Simulated scan of single mutants.
Amino acid sequence: MRSLGVAVAYPDPGVADELVHAVEAEADLYLALDPARAAVVLAGEEALSTLGEHPADAAVVGVAADRDAIAVVARAALRCGAHEIVLWPQDRAMLRSIVRDAATRARIGAGRAEGRIVAVAGARGGVGTTTVAAMLARAVAESVVVDLDPVGAGLSGFLSDGAEPTLAAVVAAVDDLDPAALSAAMAGHAAGRAICAEPREAAPTKQQAARMLALLRATVPVAVIDAGRAADDAAMAAISLADQTICVCTPDVASIRGARALIAAAGRGFPVVLNRSARMRLSAKDVARVVGAPPVAVIPDDPAIRRAGEAGRLPSRGAARRAIERLAGLILAEASDGS
């Protein structure tokens, strides 16, 4: 987790000193001496009226040093668009979480949330999109896998014991959620964490999907989206907004043609993954001839996937797992290169 620079703009030297020490006591916060370079500004009433001097995309947290000042600070915070209010010193224990949540909301508003979205779409049904998405998420630390294929809702089959699908609840409240609430809605899963759909539940709208993706960017380093066959507006929104989209196909004529059709429908090229590759079937060269480029990854037909899936697990070893881990490494390398 990256450190955040916090500037303190409070007129009372004693309160300002307490705020500085509180910031410096947190391992992932540091004192920004130049407010223009701060990610978050802790500001008293007077400073809230002069925040035009600070960067427009910085988070602003109003500070009230006593209960009688809360109403005055709240009005000043509303006028300048502050993201939160702290009652000092009563909120001392929550300062870190308040600061980080405010910074996240500022990044969302400024379009600067840093998480990466990877959409996994299937050339047709039954090509293994859900398993590839789940295994890809498992291979990336601190990621989450999200089910935007409510028709199949295959990710729910890998939920941990006692965990429930939460996509419907997230979608219903998506306009009011913040990153902390979204994190709380992530359920235990064989891939690590997941937001799963119930079978046959209504798909999110395009707008709901876009809002959820924005929250995911601000909440996790990488979110892997199972877009299924990209058969609705939410799945197509995920494909259009993702940093990277991967199309999964199998070595058969209908699937490879489906990959070409999906790429054409999306209006932009993206890599193809050949899943369940085996001898005496169509090859990576055949895929390249149809879609115009060789597969970015070839995942062998691996019985370990079927055996694990029947038990609600992901395979702990095997050729398919190694191939998907290499694919995850390629995606992370592209992210670090800014591509």
Rank of each mutant, 00 (worst) to 15 (best):
G228S: 08
I263G: 02
L136Q: 03
T131L: 04
E325W: 09
S183Q: 11
M94K: 01
V287K: 02
A121D: 04
D101K: 00
P251L: 15
A223T: 04
V8Q: 01
L33W: 12
D91R: 00
A110N: 01
L95Y: 05
G109F: 13
P179E: 08
G309F: 09
A141I: 02
D233V: 13
G162W: 13
E46A: 15
I117R: 04
A227L: 02
A173E: 15
T129D: 04
A218H: 05
A106W: 13
H83K: 02
P251E: 13
T130R: 03
A194L: 11
V72D: 15
A218Q: 04
L314N: 09
A259S: 08
P204W: 02
A77I: 06
R321M: 15
G81S: 07
D68P: 00
A190T: 08
L182E: 06
G52R: 08
P199V: 10
R276A: 11
A59F: 13
T166C: 05
V146E: 08
L177T: 05
G292I: 10
S156C: 12
P35G: 13
G44R: 00
A238K: 02
I324D: 05
G126N: 05
M212C: 12
P295W: 08
I108D: 04
A65E: 12
A231M: 10
L282W: 05
A139P: 08
L216E: 06
A235C: 09
V72A: 15
R105K: 07
G192M: 09
D337C: 08
M135W: 07
V287E: 04
L241A: 14
T130P: 05
D101S: 07
G115N: 05
A71Y: 10
G312P: 07
V73S: 05
P271S: 12
H189G: 10
R276G: 02
A103S: 04
P11W: 06
E24Q: 13
H83D: 14
A308S: 15
G125Q: 04
A191Y: 02
G14H: 03
S255I: 09
A169T: 10
V73H: 01
A163R: 02
K206H: 12
R96F: 10
P35R: 02
L182C: 07
E24Y: 06
R92D: 14
G128W: 02
A265R: 14
A123T: 01
S316D: 15
R100H: 09
A180N: 01
G318A: 13
D91I: 00
A259N: 01
D226T: 02
D337E: 15
R112D: 07
D226W: 05
C249S: 09
D34E: 14
A210N: 11
P199C: 10
